[in-house]
Design a protein around this nucleic acid. Structure first.
Lengths: 308, 308
DNA sequence: ATAACTTACGGTAGACGTAAGCATC
DNA sequence: GATGCTTACGTCTACCGTAAGTTAT
């Protein structure tokens, strides 16, 4: 039993049981991976993987349980290494952040800029994707933490911390009919084609529920993954946009205006930071989080994510 | 980083930082231990031990935290091995039970006998000692579980399960004055020299508190670690014995009788089984526990000792 | 003076990589 | 036939043990 074997097993599961991929992902030879896994199985006296001839097709029942233990052991070993690193006052390394487009482009830039000045030797990686991808990336330990708004609360493996709240706003080109109307209602908005986020990719619960509650079925003509695409099409006069208010603060589309911003058609959304339970981060990761949400202090995060 | 290094660090702390002892305990060379520990320290980039010249004198602050992580990693690795063993339906191995004399001699024999028939290839080791030794042995992972009455509830690392309750009884030689008296009180008992358990070694809270509550200061003339010694001296007429009622069921001292057994001078004691939290036992260990306390089922023990 | 850790060094087991073999798709 | 796992084998790293060196008690 050694850590390398554990890493191979974990990677095998994460790479669809393709040992060739595992080998390339972990920068080693395929035959070595194969042998180490077999060695581990023989030492434990149980088969971890179901094999069909020479192909791995799944985990055995025992393998499933063993995998959980192995993942925990590796997690804690990585914690130990990170702990040592930070004790060492190390200020170089990697910082992997899983996030969605909205956060990557509208909320993170300020923190990233500050962080890069403070820790010039830390390599920042933004892993951008859907909420599902974001949570998976953190659960797998590929990213140190996540910043996103949707899809992070349903996972027992994650612990989430609220950062800030915001609402969706209605956006139209300057001079649009809605800009001339007073006392705008959601029904008024629903009379125009809607351009907003793709549900599957971005989550837009608060938007949908607002229309449902008002008894309206909006004509969602076009959906996109990020606000910039949406704004581009609204700018072209193809419909009324609904985007996060933070997406309107960059002033890059001078021809677009928000309407009835005081009406608050939609329930607020809360952007959260998620850390995998039991994960200890580098000290600079906590610094980064504090830059995004100053009220989230390292001591608190460490305590809640690592009870005991 | 490898498991051997972790084992060396753990053993170093458990063997008073004496690496020579560590080497002999783990059946390896002293120089190897020394080198591996240094290698680990250099890989982590932190000193785990405080050194005074060539002698280890303590743990550093970082070493203290690292030790906790290391112990947890080793614990879970041992769990993995045991899990595999039991999946393998393995019926050979070791079963280490930490216990006190009283349990070793009066409650365990029946279970041990049954167990040895059922699992002839399992080596049973009874680690007998004081309550403090018993708890320490389980916390260190040297014993699989403990059976004892006192001193196990104060440890957060342990989870205890009540097995059965019993009381202490008053024992005298046949024909003793107390056997002729009716309506015996504790005050009557206190008029004679008392022979009972050594407080430090065995714990005798319920005995002491009974006398305190009755406003009596008994003349505890002789204390011993085990009931057989006590009974021997009572048999010689040197005083009145107070022993666990279970110790009177063997019939080996035909000249001794209990007095006023219906009076119940002392509060009941509960003998408990303790498992270190996070420890997974061999299946045969659960079988043994069920033999001692049939209501303690494997599923329940595994669930409570291994949440998540 | 003794106990105890470190350093040096040679031997060996085990991990790694290349290449060939064989089983699925 | 292509992909992908296993087996075989040579290489080399790194762990282990012996022995000598060094530092506290």
């Amino acid at each position: 039993m050694n850590f390398q074997q554990f890493r191979f097993v974990r990677a095998a599961v994460r790479n669809d049981l393709n040992l060739t991929e595992v080998a390339s992902a972990l920068y080693t030879s395929q035959s070595g991976v194969s042998k180490q896994i077999k060695d581990l199985e023989s030492e434990l006296g149980i088969e971890l993987f179901v094999r069909k001839g020479k192909r791995l097709t799944g985990l055995t029942k025992a393998g499933h349980s063993a995998l959980q233990m192995i993942e925990r052991i590796l997690l804690e070993t990585e914690n130990l290494r990170r702990y040592a690193d930070q004790y060492h006052e190390q200020e170089s390394g990697r910082l992997v952040i899983a996030t969605t487009h909205n956060q990557a482009i509208y909320t993170l830039p300020g923190a990233v800029q500050k962080f890069m000045k403070l820790y010039p030797k830390v390599n920042i990686e933004l892993r951008q994707g859907t909420p599902k991808y974001v949570t998976q990336t953190v659960i797998n330990g590929i990213a140190d933490f996540a910043i996103a708004t949707e899809g992070m609360d349903q996972h027992a493996e994650l612990i989430t911390y609220p950062c800030f709240s915001w609402r969706h706003v209605v956006v139209v080109p300057r001079g649009h009919a809605l800009t001339k109307k007073n006392n705008i209602t959601l029904a008024d908005v629903a009379q125009y084609p809607i351009i907003t986020y793709n549900h599957e990719f971005t989550g837009r619960t608060s938007i949908s529920s607002a229309f449902v509650q008002a008894g309206l079925t909006p004509d969602v003509r076009l959906t996109a993954i990020d606000a910039d695409v949406i704004k581009t099409y609204v700018d072209l006069g193809l419909g009324v946009g609904i985007v996060a208010e933070i997406a309107m603060r960059d002033g890059k589309y001078p021809n677009l205006v928000t309407v009835a911003e005081d009406v608050k058609f939609f329930e607020p959304c809360t952007t959260k930071i998620a850390i995998r339970r039991g994960t200890l981060l580098h000290s600079y990761a906590y610094r980064f989080i504090e830059m995004v949400a100053p009220e989230l202090k390292e001591a608190e995060l460490r305590k809640t994510a690592n009870p005991a």
